[in-house]
Amino acid sequence: MATEAQGESTGLEFHPMEQFIVKPLFGDGPVQWYTPTNVTLWMGIILLAIIALFVMGTRGRAIVPNRVQSIAELGYGMVHKMVGDVVGKDGLKYFPYIMCLFLFIVFANMLGLLPKAFTVTSHIAVTAVLALAVFISVTVIGFVKNGTHFLGLFWVTSAPLVLRPVLAVIEVISYFVRPVSHSIRLAGNMMAGHAVIKVFAGFAALALVSPVSILAVTAMYGLEVLVAFIQAYVFTILTCVYLKDALHPGH
């Protein structure tokens, strides 16, 4: 399509989206639901990295931790404090789930930044499943814990009576937009960053602009490391906020 036309006319080749293709690991067959693909490979790597940090690293159970163990404890402490601060004491029951989400996203983002890596969180299918899982479980928790009182989330009693129906419509819409923005934010950030790096890298084929291009790639890479962490943090903290809304709907 567009990129190919450009490639023919200028000699530059831009394939910013090629890095996101899901390919089978063995052979060239169609991608069935069970086929081991590069998604499988990188999810396995993510899983192994997390296990290496959190199971192998804490094997010593040392009172005075070594480096790896203190990193694991740092991550544990950060998410634990976040859940405690944002959701409250009764939210700590859901801490393992939130911790898993945070770890999976942060490792996927960071490992995806390795050259030649495949970023699983850049796919809307993955982030949509994560966001929908959060959305559905939070809604179920809200109804189980609070019953119909949970609907008070949409009926703003502090507003004047005339405005309440209007606000209720807005609140309902914003509630159902949550999983959409929740998933697209993460996937879009990851996709955008990687695509921009790829485009800058494509310019390196021209000798004249290649130093600028390499500098730009370096700068974007630094920014992407920051974004990779912040997006994982934001995903987690928004999960905490939604959970707080479900547990304490009375604002």
Partner: peptide
Amino acid sequence: MPQLDFSTFPNQIFWL
């Protein structure tokens, strides 16, 4: 966009 290639969705979701 590979992200909108629905044929790979079941695969990704399954492995996720």
